[in-house]
Simulated scan of single mutants.
Amino acid sequence: MAEARWLSQTFVHWPYEPWIVQDLLPSGLTVDTYEDAAWVGFTPFVMSALRPGGLPPPRWSFPETNLRTYVRRPDGLDGLWFLSLDVGAAVMLAARAIGAPYHLGALTVHVGDGLVRYAGVRRGGFPSYGLTVRPGAPVAPGARDVWLTSRWRAFTRTGRVLWQTAVDHEPWPLYTADVVDLRQTLTAAAGLPAPSGPAVLHYAPRVRAVRFAPPRPSPAGPLSAVCATVRRHR
């Protein structure tokens, strides 16, 4: 089992029409919705003290940025689907073997003067992003806050095989956050239109004792009736 910490993580979530996101998913997964919207999350952070399972030190620390959405299997099991994963360390590229869409890039995270500044550009110069936020007060999480930030597995796919990777960690210590600056082309690179709804923001200074289970095949089965309904309402 791999272990790590997550530091200085910001969640920027945008609502989308469910059919738009469904078109980006593989067969066997249905877009998950909250208040009739699909949600796409832009989440930069620092992966700290990463130790792959069974390996001795050293531990790795590096910036990572996810573009993700929320999905369900036909049996209702929920999880994350990553539209892209940008990372500053080649150690993560091994996860491409199970379909994780990792890309190397130049990524930075700076914390100071009451601000958290993120920047990144993928090798080749596209896509890129710049985000500056001002964290605020602690949040007593409501239902939507929990739904957007608390997922305990991720799905990936290679060929006909759907994989699931379970993750466990302490509850997120969520804070409010205000955007000072935001520029990004990650959504366009993933095949999404520009976000049109207001963003929902959260900030978490740290989560300790993150544990990743080894990936394993995940029964997918046929698309569910919910997926068919999503497509019919385009």
Rank of each mutant, 00 (worst) to 15 (best):
E3T: 14
A4W: 05
W6D: 01
H13M: 11
I20D: 03
V21I: 13
V21R: 07
V21Y: 15
L25V: 05
P26K: 04
S27L: 05
D32Q: 12
D36P: 03
A37M: 14
T43V: 15
P44D: 04
M47D: 14
A49M: 12
L50W: 12
R51N: 11
G54E: 09
L55N: 04
P56Q: 11
P63R: 08
E64V: 11
T65I: 07
N66W: 12
N66R: 13
Y70H: 00
R73N: 06
G76W: 03
L80M: 02
W81L: 08
L83R: 13
A89P: 03
L93Q: 12
L104P: 06
G105S: 07
A106F: 12
V109N: 04
H110P: 12
H110E: 15
G120D: 09
R122C: 10
G125I: 04
F126R: 15
G130D: 09
V133F: 03
R134C: 07
R134N: 08
A143W: 02
R151M: 10
R151S: 09
R153K: 14
F155D: 07
T158A: 04
T165D: 02
A166M: 14
D168P: 08
H169V: 14
W172H: 15
W172T: 14
A177R: 04
D181P: 02
A190L: 04
P193L: 13
P193I: 02
A199H: 10
Y203C: 10
Y203G: 00
V207G: 13
A209D: 04
R216D: 07
P217H: 04
R232W: 06
